[in-house]
Design a binder for these strands. Structure first.
Length: 850
RNA sequence: GCGGGUGUGGCGGAAUGGCAGACGCGCCAGACUUAGGAUCUGGUGGGCUCAGCCCGUGGAGGUUCAAAUCCUCUCACCCGCACCA
């Protein structure tokens, strides 16, 4: 803005700047947020402002934020998540979409049960009270949710369909019960999913995790591994980072399976390798300690030692096992197997570095070409056989200090000797296949999803065990299997359901005989894997959802939440969606088209936490500054994807800004009410203000579209500053009320998604009848953005040495001439020769001189 | 170890290869005030021989008329995964 220079007539205002504004029309100096928020919360609810129809005629937009666990209190992370989502939802609404913007509760889970044990509150009561409290806080924050669609995963009307979905998996053989070594947290007395084990400890309580063999329910997500991996390519709207994390988690590796027979036995040991080209270099075999063949293949004289080794490995927590700093320990179990390629016998070991969970639980030992095998062989004096020679070098086992893992030419490899190792991989794999000793194989790191929890506060698994009929699914019409309310919560570690005869004892749905219910409940990630479908038909009773509504709303156009869900929640949801698509219940293969992962809210450089005592409570901030200020600060302080450092002073600044808007609009109100833009062409300051208004529309629109919400806010701030300068510096007789009105209304419209209360109140004060939140998003006129004159920077050898004011459309030739004419530039160029001149139209002239 | 990210004033942060530091905070000075933790105005990267010039986006090179931005190497911090055969 150039008002200042242009005007140079600040003096026309007799008194201080603000006297011209406020003195004549006394309004509240400060935005009375308490009063205003209360008023509009009530009106909006009455008018169903945020209710969205399923059969609207505008294009749909599904804006979803990750639903919270109802801990009882909103924290700043929630505020950030929901403030971002609300800007998107309100923006899209104003842009003419029917926006589905729902909220619910991820309401099952451990904390409720812990509260029951600790404070004697029933998990259900505790949870519903928390939900009520948090719902109020969200309403206070002014988030535009369609509350008619609210859902809670712990409500029987919801978990009925969670159970129903489980049965769909069960009927198709994708929900199976299996004995499995599981991660057991002795403190929580429950089974943990692999993803819930962090550094060998329990994700929640950090105590070391043990291994136990238990019969557990699994969902066979591994059947979808390939699709879950490949379809990541179909998600251009996801952050690269998240896709890479999922890719690594699925962990595809290409290789071969080779089968090593046992001499004089029917038993065979299949192994998985990514290096079939090194099969000729095998000098030993290693089984995981838990491998089922260990017992059979151990010779009697080794039995005691092996049993001890296995027992130790088995009971050792994951933590202890990995804490060994990679020290490889093993034991020869006395028997041998045969290399299918060479016919050679190699000794069989067990070792701590081989994991039962990956591949086949057995590994061929190729010390020359695998670093782990190399270390193991050196430690136990096993032979090292080189089968790949690097170009221009001759490896010898005696002199090697580490394994050679790169490319080379095969040696000592029978018919394959002399081949490059890459083609040899394919050749050897083919050879294995021909001889029935193996085949090409893809292996995934991803494991099946263990969903059993030995807990009360979860959706019961709808299964009955009958002495005669075995495992029987609960018929769909008998759903939901209700959680009994009257159960005892004792810190025994056993599920309270086990001690609840009324729940356990039932009749077999098939034969009617006395039978027992499954007492495990489902992992809460199951509940959160389909909630985004349920929002479309939250009260539907004839099925999990109304298919027509799914087709209208899905996929979610924008999903917003923390990165901490990058793997589990998002992978499980994708898995569910693919399964449901396969069985014809939904029409989409991917649930979330665009994903925004917001950063954390930090205080003093660290995540807010009770133990650090650096928590800032949204409640306090909202009480002190109001919802709009709270939202605005959190949106302004950093771009959504980055971590955000909390600043009390920053909040203060945002409150100050909203007060400035408040005073400005109130002050100009009498002047602009009823005025209109003039028909004739604008000139001077009026034209300049109009240009700034439209430039701001452009900037804010584009910024919001790219989620640069912080710069969107700063653009509005600049417009506000510009209008202040306009009102302060331009006498009333010179300024156009219509232009001023357009500027003021634009400020409110652009601010509406960020500060919904204040903008609504001022909008009403300007005499508008309907809600500002139903107004169309402003559009800018490209023609209004053009400047007549622009300041062109003149550089000499890349350094700014002057400026010239030129018509915006000046030709390069003209720009060059004007630049060279500038006195300062002439002085600098006096003793130099101009070599070259570069011009950027409307912007810059760079003179290269020597 | 592997993968990803981030380094810009006192602070949060802006900059389609084209004026580094928009906007906000803080700070300094001033105005109005009994008062100011209200409001407004002006200033605010560092340095110097201060109308001007030099330096400056973690560091070192390079490409270019022009680099925070592109390339090479390097350092620091953060986040995932981690004996994955």
């Amino acid at each position: 803005m150039h008002f200042k220079q242009e005007a140079g007539r600040k003096d026309f205002i007799a008194g201080p700047a603000n006297s011209s504004m406020v003195a004549e029309d006394i309004v509240e100096e400060k935005y009375p947020f308490l009063k205003v928020e209360k008023k509009w919360r009530g009106r909006w609810a009455e008018e169903d402002l945020c209710v969205v129809e399923d059969h609207g005629d505008r294009p749909k937009y599904y804006c979803l934020e990750m639903f919270p666990y109802p801990s009882g209190k909103l924290h700043m992370g929630h505020v950030r998540n929901y403030a971002i989502g609300d800007v998107v939802a309100r923006f899209k609404t104003m842009q003419g979409h029917d926006v589905l913007h729902p909220m619910g509760w991820d309401a099952f889970g451990l904390p409720a049960e812990n509260a029951a044990i600790k404070h004697g509150v029933h998990p259900s009561d505790w949870t519903w009270e928390n939900i009520a409290a948090m719902r109020e806080q969200l309403k206070q924050l002014g988030v535009s949710y369609d509350w008619r669609r609210e859902l809670a995963t712990c409500h029987p009307g919801y978990y009925r369909w969670t159970q129903w979905l489980f049965l769909q998996f069960f009927h198709r053989g994708l929900a199976v019960k299996d004995k499995a070594p599981v991660n057991w947290c002795p403190s929580c007395a429950t089974v943990l999913a692999n993803e819930q084990v962090v550094n060998g400890g329990c994700e929640r309580c950090k105590s070391p995790v043990e291994k136990r063999e238990l019969a557990q329910w699994f969902l066979k997500i591994t059947e979808y591994a390939a699709r879950l991996l490949n379809d990541l390519k179909q998600l251009p709207g996801w952050p690269e980072k998240v896709k890479i994390m999922q890719e690594n988690w699925i962990g595809k590796s290409e290789g071969a399976e080779a089968v090593f027979p046992i001499p004089g036995s029917q038993e065979k040991i299949p192994i998985f390798t990514t290096r079939p080209d090194t099969l000729y270099g095998v000098t030993y075999m290693v089984l995981a300690p838990e491998h089922p063949l260990v017992e059979k293949l151990t010779v009697p004289e080794k039995a005691a030692a092996v049993a001890e080794f296995v027992a130790r490995a088995r009971n050792l927590s994951e933590l202890m096992r990995t804490a060994g700093e990679g020290e490889k320990n093993g034991l020869f179990i006395g028997s041998y197997c045969i290399n299918p390629l060479t016919g050679e016998e190699v000794p069989i070991f067990i070792a701590n570095y081989v994991l039962m969970e990956y591949g086949t639980g057995a590994v061929m030992g190729v010390p020359a070409h695998d670093q782990r095998d190399f270390e193991f062989a050196r430690k136990y004096n096993l032979p090292i056989r080189v089968v790949i020679q690097p170009p221009g070098e001759e490896l010898a086992p005696e002199t090697m200090t580490e394994a050679y893992v790169d490319e080379g030419v095969l040696v000592n490899s029978g018919p394959f000797t002399g081949m490059e190792n890459l083609p040899a991989m394919r050749a050897i794999t083919a050879y294995l296949e021909e001889n029935g000793s193996g085949r090409g194989r893809l292996n995934y790191r991803l494991r099946d999803w263990l969903i059993s929890r030995q807990r009360y506060w979860g959706a019961p698994i709808p299964i009955v065990y009958c002495g005669r009929c075995g495992t029987v699914p609960v018929p769909e019409e008998d759903l939901p299997v209700l959680l009994p309310y009257d159960v005892a919560f004792k810190p025994t570690g056993q599920s309270p359901l086990k001690d609840c005869p009324d729940f356990v004892n039932t009749a077999c749905p098939r034969c009617g005989a006395a039978a027992q219910r499954e007492t495990d409940t489902m992992d809460t990630f199951i509940c959160s894997s389909w909630y985004y479908f349920r929002y479309t038909s939250a009260r539907e009773e004839g099925g999990p959802w109304d298919r027509a509504k799914i087709d209208r709303w899905l996929p979610v156009d924008q999903y917003i939440g923390g990165v901490e869900h990058a793997i589990m929640h998002l992978l499980y949801s994708r898995f569910f969606t693919k399964f449901l698509c396969d069985i014809g219940l939904v029409g989409v293969e991917e649930p979330f088209t665009n994903l925004l992962t917001q950063g954390m809210v930090l205080k003093d450089g660290a995540k807010m936490s009770k133990s650090k005592g650096n928590i800032v409570s949204p409640e306090d901030i909202m009480a002190r500054y109001g919802a709009d200020t709270t939202r605005l600060f959190i949106l302004f302080a950093a771009p959504p994807e980055r971590d955000l450092e909390w600043s009390d002073q920053g909040v203060e600044g945002c409150a100050r800004f909203l007060n400035r808007v408040w005073r400005l609009v109130n002050a100009v109100l009498p002047e602009i009410k009823g005025s209109h833009l003039p028909k004739q062409r604008l000139i001077g300051v009026n034209r300049e203000l109009r240009r700034l208004t439209h430039l701001t529309i452009k900037r804010v629109t584009e910024d919001v579209e790219r989620f640069n919400l912080n710069t969107a806010v700063s653009a509005v701030m600049e417009l506000v500053n510009g209008v202040y300068r306009f009102v302060d510096c331009v006498p009333k007789t010179d300024r156009d009320a219509g232009v001023l009105r357009e500027a003021a209304e634009t400020i409110l419209l652009l601010l509406a998604p960020f500060a919904p209360f204040l903008s609504e109140e001022l909008w009403a004060r300007l005499g508008h009848r309907g809600s500002i939140h139903r107004r169309p998003w402003p559009k800018y006129g490209p023609a209004l953005l053009v400047q007549e004159k622009v300041t062109v920077v003149v550089q000499v050898n890349g350094k700014v040495r002057g400026r010239v004011i030129l018509p915006a459309e000046a030709e390069p030739k003209e720009m060059e001439q004007e630049a060279l004419r500038e006195p300062r530039i002439r002085k600098i160029l006096a003793d130099k020769d101009v070599v070259k001149v570069i011009t950027v139209p409307g912007k810059l002239v760079n003179i290269v001189a020597r």
